[in-house]
Design a protein around this nucleic acid. Structure first.
Lengths: 161, 161
DNA sequence: TTGTAATTAATGTAAATACATTTAATTTTG
DNA sequence: CAAAATTAAATGTATTTACATTAATTACAA
């Protein structure tokens, strides 16, 4: 069960705030909705003892399909690059969800792989995540596509010019 | 139906990721773009010695138009509710950007107001912020409006049912 | 009224984060 | 080859965060 942290008030405030332009509003709106979405995810993960960052790392490991990935590789793929992949892997190791060993090709590097326990935990969470996403069913696929496109475009403003 | 997301605009690291649906992608995309946007804002604010949270509080205070607001009032309006408004106000006080005094109507509460120094700092930042937003000029106002509408709709899914 | 509940802000704290530094291994250069 | 530069991961640390608790005041109910 997800709890809303009195979004009524904040959403209201966002509406009441006067913005100079749709762009000015978008900047605040994206940050705000991103925080909100992260908070929702956080609540969803709590029963499974994972932080959103740990979850993100686990999913990256799953995406490797049984191939090991180095700590640096994880860092490059993380949503929030500033977090410390080393310590996140520590946490996952404590929970026995991943395996860590020296990389044979380069002894500076460390290979990390997801364990079956990690995979089955992810599968369990997948179910809940999917069920939760049904909350958005009333928003059309077209709209979601549109929004994804615009978000991508917004970030690209800085990458292609 | 599986949607293969073509992600021209998606950052390098998310590019490979396959999503099961536009909604699944949207969840990650919103969090990721929110982090990205926050990071941009953070860089923009660094020269002025403000964290994004302190900046947010200052803007809330400016929005009060010379009326005091309590610490609780600030908390309710903050983008990230979990931060500690009390300590944020402490920081702004150290910088002599705000005024804090006991609320005469309720001695439990504390009134906070922005000082002229705070206002002029905000005005300075406004200039830079506005200049930075010009980076998004090539994205049409219509698109920004669309996106704002969809983001609002996404959050509202949980408030109206 | 008086005691109980509630609210408001501040404080305590364990953990997480941002960022710098260190250590070890590898690559490059002279 | 040896020295210097670079790279990868871990570690140190100050700050921030999330969350619980406390202290003071107000509201409320018996």
């Amino acid at each position: 069960m997800l709890h809303q942290i009195s979004s009524m008030g904040i959403s209201e405030d966002l509406k009441q705030t006067k913005f100079n332009s749709p762009t000015s509003k978008a900047v605040v709106n994206i940050i705000f909705t991103g925080n909100w979405m992260m908070q929702q995810t956080h609540e969803l993960l709590k029963p499974y003892g994972l932080t959103p960052q740990q979850y993100n790392v686990l999913r990256i490991l799953r995406g490797q399909q049984n191939n090991p990935i180095t700590v640096l590789g994880i860092t490059e793929r993380m949503l929030d690059k500033m977090s410390n992949a080393s310590r996140l892997v520590d946490k996952l190791l404590e929970k026995k969800l991943v395996l860590r060993r020296e990389c044979p090709k380069d002894r500076r590097a460390v290979d990390v792989m997801i364990l079956p326990a990690g995979l089955s935990l992810l599968e369990e969470i997948d179910q809940v995540q999917l069920a939760w996403e049904k909350n958005f069913a009333r928003i059309s696929t077209d709209k979601m596509d549109q929004m994804n496109e615009i978000l991508d475009e917004i970030r690209n403003v800085f990458t292609n010019n």
